[in-house]
Each structure stands twice: as structure tokens, then as C-alpha cells.
Design a protein around this nucleic acid. Sequence first.
DNA 1: CTCATGGCGATACACTGTATTTCTGGGATA
DNA 2: TATCCCAGAAATACAGTGTATCGCCATGAG
Lengths: 230, 230
Amino acid sequence: MTVWDRPEPPARPVPLDRERIVAAAIALADEGGLEAVSLRKVAGRLNAGPMRLYGYISTKEELFDLMVDEVHAEILPEEQPGDWREALRIIAHRTRQTVLRHEWLAELLGGRPTLGPNGLAVTEAKLAALDGLADIDTVMRAVETVSAYFTGAIRREIANLRAERATGLSKRDWQRASGPHVTRVLATGRFPTLAKAVYDGTEVDAEASFATGLDWVLDAVAVKLTRPPT
Amino acid sequence: MTVWDRPEPPARPVPLDRERIVAAAIALADEGGLEAVSLRKVAGRLNAGPMRLYGYISTKEELFDLMVDEVHAEILPEEQPGDWREALRIIAHRTRQTVLRHEWLAELLGGRPTLGPNGLAVTEAKLAALDGLADIDTVMRAVETVSAYFTGAIRREIANLRAERATGLSKRDWQRASGPHVTRVLATGRFPTLAKAVYDGTEVDAEASFATGLDWVLDAVAVKLTRPPT
DNA sequence: CTCATGGCGATACACTGTATTTCTGGGATA
DNA sequence: TATCCCAGAAATACAGTGTATCGCCATGAG
């Protein structure tokens, strides 16, 4: 029984940390969506048993929280411009782009409070952009309003995107001709305005529509800011 | 072997329809959240085997779609007031109240296009409120912007509500004192504006905050409507 | 060299969504 | 009336899930 006959001892388990676990989970989610993230698969990717993960998280939801916080690092802009409008606009667009890169984020965004370091940093950036331009309550309301708008808008955009992908059709074609259900329903005449919107509306690309709505909301905020700055 | 010895023949299976299935699913979700909705439990509640449901839906997601559309009936206002602002405001508030009644809706709202009859009716109502006040593209943008705001706001409100319930603390107390993590992080001084907001901000109730933000957004829409009505 | 212990893998459990197979009662036909 | 057939329901099956528990073993201490 020479050395060559004996197998090497089993490799000591690779040390783990949350960073590696979260990275593996994010990779999985990027590839196959949130539903592709299972503790077994995450652990498998790290050559570990599923139970190993419970030393680092105590529930799958916590893993999701960590994933969300991790990608918030991509949202945080490098440096803040002086103009509050520009600052909020950039954060909104960066959020959108991050969600487009990690579509699974749409399911999670706004679903739970974001209390991780990166999430808090993003919140800080939003608030800081408006700090001093009004009393803190107004600032909070403004940030929450803008954030509510863009999380809602992004979520809807992703929902539409997925529907389009599922049918392989552009939103327009799908509504107009190929979604037999929608076509039939519109033909009943019970939804005249909707029909008009579908048939007569101009198709605008998602980013432009996002930007336009965002500008409207920012306009609204601007009005409230010029109001008593206290 | 008299009649008495013989058991009655097994009751003929209760006839099913989507309405009953959806009602059962909604009841389950209202009681135990979305995660309490399993095809087995839904079927069980109707004295049927799980596979029976597949005659009426072909996937669990479709069941969710039906549930969402069903509760959209609660959102649709009985009659539309003439004033577009009031009309949109009412829809927004009815949506919020419906989600508060059916918290599971928060997870689903905006997650997929709403193509059911009630969903379309709600969309029609939104569009109809603004019809004629601007070109159809502007009307669509307005409706989408307002809807994005309030779905985002509602989702966040529910997220906070759940977090509060989970800790048994008011949002304020939780952030301020009892969430050791948040307290510790704020103490680092890395998030000065956030700290100011948490410590110096006034606690406003969710409905008021929702209404305020909504008014801001409606103001923004009003401005765009008075623009070239074309 | 022995022992204890902390951490890891294996095992187990209850449950999920869904595909497939098996059964059965009622209607159609002879 | 007796037979066949078949739609549709039920049972079974399967691969997978999150998580609790158990038993082992390598590494450090004594």
C-alpha cells in the first residue's frame, strides 16, 4: 500500500463567509431568477452541505436580505452632485439599471425594510441630497414619495418586460393583436378609454417613460421645497 | 347484509368552479398570508384532491392572477366623480384599503400585468378619469406615474407594518431604541442625515403620509394637464 | 497519547407543485 | 337490461424545498 494507492485525505472544507455565500446566491439568481436560489444549490456552488449555511444565516429570508443589501452597493453613486434634483435622479436611474442587471431584485425591492449597510447608505444619500432645503419632515416625505414612485415604476417595467418575453412579442403587438384575450375584451367596448390608449397611444421606450414620470415627481417635490424652508 | 350494513355510496364530488377555488385561496391567504396558499390546502378546503384544480388553472401562478383580479373588484369605485383628482385619489385610497384588508396583495401588486376583467376595469377607470383633459399619451403617462407612486408607497407601508409587527414595536421605537443594529449604525455617525430624520423627525401616521405624497404627485399631474391639452 | 469539543455532513421530516397512473361511476349503445 | 366506454376524479409518484436533529471525526488542549 504505497502512497499512491492511498487517496489524499478529504480536503478540509473551504472556509466560508457571508460574502461568498451571498455572491453565490446572486450568481444563481442572475442566471435563473429568484426561484433558482435554493439553499442546496447555493451551498453546492460552494462545495458545502446545505446546513453549513445556517451558521451564517438563520433563514432563507435573511439570505435574500443580504442579497438585496449587496446589490445596493451598485446603486450608491460614487459622488453626489450638488444639485438635489440631479442627485435623486441619478439614484433613481441607478436603481433602475441595477434592477435591470438583477431582475430578481424587482421581486424584493420594497418588500422589506432595507437595514443593511448599503441600503442605509443609499437612504442617507437620498436624504442628504435634500438636507437643509426644507425641514426634516418635508425632506423625508419628499424622499419617500420619489422612492415610492421609482420602485413602483421599476416593478411594473420588469413585470411588463417579463410578460413580453414570455410571449415573445412587444407590449404593443401583444396587446393589440396577439393577446387574444385582451383583443377580445377591448372589442366589447366596455373599456373605451383603454382601447383608445392601446390603439392610438404612441409606443415610448421604457426608459423615457420612467424619466418623464420621474421628472414630474421631482417637479412636485421642487414646489414643496420652495415652500416654507422653515 | 341489510341496507344498514352497507355504507352510503361516496358523496358525488362537489362541483367546482374558479369562483369557489379563488374564494378558498383568498380565505387562506387572508388568514395565513400568501405562503399559506398551497394547492393542497386550497383543494382540501373544497373537499377535493389537489389535482382537481388543474382543470381550472394550469399553474399556481394563474391562481394568484385570479386572486389578484378578484380583489380588484374591491378597488373599483362604484361611481366616478367628475373631478379627475378626486377620481384618482379615490382609486388610490381604495387600493390602499384593499391591500390593508388583504395584505398578501402587496406581494403581488405590480408583479405581473393585470389583465383580468376587474383589473382592466380599474385601469379603464383611471384612464377615463383623465380622458379628454390631455392627449392620450399624456393621460397614460399620468396614470402610470400616479399608479407607480401608490403601488410603491403601499408596498413600503406593508413592509414596514410587517417589520413592526415582527418586533412588536412601533416603527419609531424600533428604529430609535430597540433595533440594536440600527441604533449602533446610526451611532457611527456615518449617516448623519438619516440619524437626524430618525431622531428629530415627527412620526406621522401612514395614511396621512400616503395622502400627502399622493397629493404631491397629483399636483405634478395637474401641472402637466394644463399644459397643451391638444 | 488521550480526550473533549466544535463544526461539519448525513440523515430525516413535512411539505411543496405537478406528472402520471389507476380507478370508477354514469351514460351510451346493443 | 347488460355491456362497454370513457371523462374525470383520486391515488400515487417524483423531484425538490426549508429546516431540525443526529452522529462522526479532525483538530486542539491537557
